[in-house]
Design a protein around this nucleic acid. Structure first.
Lengths: 222, 222
DNA sequence: CTAATAGTGTCTCTTAGACATTATCTG
DNA sequence: CAGATAATGTCTAAGAGACACTATTAG
């Protein structure tokens, strides 16, 4: 007999590679006789001696093999509630970022889906993902989140591509460079060869930095 | 026997008048023999057939007499957790705004405290209030939240004062006017008399409007 | 008459944003 | 030698921010 709502937590786990932003989903045990898998955000119930965070990480490790160190960024998204007359559920959602999928086992239970090719999902999960995408979008404009999606070293073209992919904005290359360099958040690493290779950069700070002004050029008419 | 954490919700209820930003707190039943009241954020436990929101509003009505219609703005703040080895607590916090305190009964159980004269509070409550203040500050810069703190009709001086109080910024009057009028979010109401009375304005939209660019002049050197 | 408050306009400087060409490497 | 990619500088227009005086009302 419980007198508290059920508590669960789930996560929108982003991952970016080859200019594609993806989300990690897990396949629910499909009902017998069903051919198609049912996909969900990775989620778990929270026991009374856990927090939503510890429960989630334990679950991620066992179900999809994700180590703590595979996660480059974490933040709480929001808490949603699903009331029923008898027993409501409180769901604490998180936004995680992983830099790649070295951890990915290719299990049939786990899938990495580009955000514009998501499988059928519950309305609740879709709402959460939409919210997470909005949040990520906003954060790209006002902070250095991109550092958690990109490899540690990258060139400005990669940075700009990631920026454009996530914000759905096209920006002028020269203005983008000018502005991002003016922000003084990147450090240049000596280029390895003298061929025409791009100068590789990394972020000065390894932690999220908030920008006073939205960081990039806004539009690009032509 | 529960297998879920305990769920509670609480609220940072803001109220602004006479150029002072205040928060509503309730007095916990002080332990016998204690002279001083112990103040807390209004909070309530969430039962299994409730949501944090319904539980909170029910509780607010009965404990401090706050009607639904007294609240001009609501938003979820964040969810915090207080783990203990045996039984952790999940606390869903909200940010509310009320336009004044007509509802206020002056009960000994309820207090309205200016944000810079808060009584002693638990570290958890202080953290939540700090967070709420930061959020409010950010929202003043990027949206029209001030409409929920101010009376429906106000003059630009009042608007600017509220702005300055909440952001701790002093801005130049002329620049403030120029910018806020350029945003085209206010409508002027005909002034009642032909004396030197300020023109009174109200917001065009009765709902929160997000601004693309942070709304006001930033600094004021002298 | 004095003090307080409301209202208003201009100039400067910084920054956003538009835009085209050259050099190097790959095939 | 053709095609792709990286690097770079200048001009213009808009907006941020600094700044001072006049008119009205209240005491």
């Amino acid at each position: 007999m419980q007198n508290s709502p059920l508590v669960v937590s789930n996560v929108t786990l982003f991952q970016y590679s080859e200019d594609i932003l993806s989300i990690v989903l897990t396949a629910a045990n499909s009902p017998a006789g069903t051919l198609k898998a049912t996909w969900r955000l990775p989620s778990t119930q929270v026991q009374r001696n856990q927090t939503s965070l510890t429960a989630l990480e334990t679950s991620l490790r066992s179900t999809i093999g994700l180590q703590d160190s595979d996660i480059s960024y974490r933040e709480q998204l929001y808490t949603s509630e699903y009331p029923t007359p008898s027993h409501s559920t409180v769901c604490v959602s998180y936004l995680y970022i992983s830099r790649g999928t070295r951890w990915f086992k290719g299990s049939q239970q786990v899938g990495v889906f580009p955000v514009n090719k998501l499988p059928k999902l519950s309305p609740a999960d879709r709402a959460i993902i939409r919210y997470a995408l909005d949040r990520l979008h906003a954060k790209v404009l006002h902070s250095t989140v991109l550092q958690f999606l990109l490899p540690q070293q990258f060139d400005l073209t990669q940075l700009q591509q990631a920026f454009e992919t996530i914000t759905h904005q096209r920006v002028d290359r020269r203005n983008f460079r000018k502005k991002i360099l003016a922000l003084d958040i990147l450090k240049a690493n000596k280029k390895a060869t003298n061929r025409i290779e791009s100068v590789r950069y990394s972020f000065k700070s390894s932690t999220l930095v908030l920008l006073d002004k939205p960081f990039p050029p806004r539009k690009h008419k032509k």
